[in-house]
Design a protein around this nucleic acid. Structure first.
Lengths: 330, 330
DNA sequence: TTGTACGCGTTATCAT
DNA sequence: ATGATAACGCGTACAA
């Protein structure tokens, strides 16, 4: 990226040794004010900037973290990525985005991250079995791996997520107050869904209240059309009196798909069937959706994650509380 | 990221010199089959992987590119980022996401990218004056800088965009056929809007047809609520008979905001006012929006960009054709 | 305060 | 085919 000058060149220009140049750029290094000024001038003239690659090779730290993502269909990932990148940047770190897909799996990603000497790896809501993580990280207890927006059952792999239990309790208490008594749940892909624990918390709540969950289904992708299809099928195969009166969806995208199907079928929302989502994506507030949802505290989640990443905070799994957002759909 | 072994360690284990170890990992290097096998065995036992940092220092190429983004409000950026990351990965490159914002401007980003020896920089739809780019890249003609989803007027800075002129012509021909004769345009922030050239192309079309554009306004952010507000104001201050009968919005997010305001005001869509967007985001297809739009060929855009990035294709600015998607809103 | 030697882990090139 | 030397640009430790 453009031939830049080296410390040796600046040294020659300033009439000092290259190590003195390094010192001029090292905060808190013992160097005479006079020479420092002279060096900085020469450096500016030559547009010198320390080569961070060489520095990393020497210091064994790259100040860059790998962020693994496998589902780009959910809009909430965008502001989260934005916040994550910004927060890391504020601390002098850079985030490298690694797309996990059919052609590039977790193995390859982690191998690449190791070879490139990343300081840490963040699994951002990726679908992966915990056993696989253990295998990938080679059983190492101090492998700098963090999970964001998903739970892990591995004690040595800290995660930061939205507290599903607290969220579901708050949502369901609201549903109870509103008089809903025939709850249903629309889940996403099994592995991911399990790691989120939302369905579990949802069922636990109603079980405690002695209310049966009358409908449960899972769609293969976090995709509004998949959700719409599932709901359409449900409506087509279930007479109105047997249907749920409240459909809790695992995330907002699924909820939006559900709304679509209900509207198409002429089912009144929320009179005939209420709908709620999860995440709190920006678009949920549109009148077209008016979606009741639970907002993930993604800003705080990112902040906590980065603190752990930087070692400012001990690496411990954290579940953060979000915020119930009541709108017209439920 | 976990202490990995070095070529020297493998060398000792295999009873050869470290250069022989390197050779075993260098495709097309002259090495005896026997020793190669022996080395690879030792390497596997020690879980050796070449340190890409050291390699980069020696080869002066990092195989990683910086992607600068400043607006995360537009959902179409997510699939584009997904594709960009995936395509680069397929070629052994990694994409580092740099968030441009109030605290971290283009200067800082490009400085960081240079210091970290990125192979190239991609400006992904960022709002920036061309003059500033020249300043940032130090007038260098061969600075590996590319612009995605935006036009640049700098001859030495290649860009890849959706052809605004072709797109607007296609959209407007459709509008003409449908009988719309009072066009209006809702634009985004000025600098960015100019670089997109959509408004210009829109006006040019109607000028050629001798039809005046009866409404033009710009909102300060690409944000649905800003758009809704602007449209509400327009409706409040303009009697129905003076209003445009077609509102072309610079992107889908603005269009969705416009739809919101029109619905709230009880304006019939498309009878009283038709609405069209641009980008072709996934959600535009929802019945709640049913938005006529123009789909950016983001897959192809990314592919072409990466080809240029890798030097497989000469770095030339390209305008690609997208696809008109006619739906109920216009 | 400043200069020197050496190491970080690889690649390129030359000598054997 | 293999080993040795130099170089990539910077950091650390130590000597002057």
């Amino acid at each position: 990226l453009g031939r830049s000058s080296t410390s040796a060149e600046v040294a020659k220009a300033a009439g000092v040794s290259k190590w003195t140049v390094i010192r001029a750029f090292t905060p808190g290094a013992r160097i005479a004010d006079g020479t420092r000024v002279r060096v900085l001038e020469a450096a500016r003239a030559l547009d010198y900037r320390p080569n961070l690659l060489a520095r990393s090779l020497a210091t064994r730290t790259t100040h860059s973290v790998a962020v693994l993502v496998d589902d780009f269909a959910n809009p909430y990932k965008l502001p989260t990525l934005e916040r994550l990148a910004a927060t890391l940047q504020r601390h002098g770190r850079l985030a490298t985005l690694i797309n996990i897909n059919r052609d590039y799996d977790h193995f390859e990603a982690i191998a690449a991250a190791r070879q490139r000497q990343f300081d840490a790896i963040v699994l951002f809501g990726t679908e992966i079995r915990d056993a696989l993580i253990t295998e990938l990280t080679g059983m190492t207890r101090d492998f700098p791996l963090f999970v964001l927006a998903r739970e892990s059952t591995l004690a040595h792999v800290p995660y930061v997520t939205c507290d599903s239990k607290a969220a579901m309790n708050e949502l369901c208490r609201h549903f109870v107050v509103r008089g809903y008594r025939r709850p249903g749940f629309l889940a996403g892909p099994r592995v991911m869904s399990t790691a989120l624990g939302r369905q579990r918390a949802f069922k636990a709540f109603w079980a405690r209240h002695g209310v049966p969950v009358v409908f449960e289904t899972a769609v293969p992708r976090y995709d509004h059309s998949a959700a719409a299809e599932a709901v359409s099928t449900y409506l087509a195969t279930t007479p109105p009196e047997l249907r749920c009166d409240l459909l809790m969806c695992e995330n907002d995208i699924l909820a939006i798909g559900a709304l679509e199907a209900l509207r198409r079928a002429g089912v009144g929302i929320p009179e005939n069937m209420a709908v709620a989502g999860f995440d709190g994506i920006d678009l949920a507030s549109l009148a077209a959706f008016d979606l009741t949802t639970y907002r993930q505290p993604y800003e705080e989640m990112v902040d906590v994650l980065v603190e752990m990443l930087l070692g400012h905070k001990p690496p411990e799994s954290v579940r953060l509380k979000g915020e119930l957002v009541v709108r017209g759909s439920a």
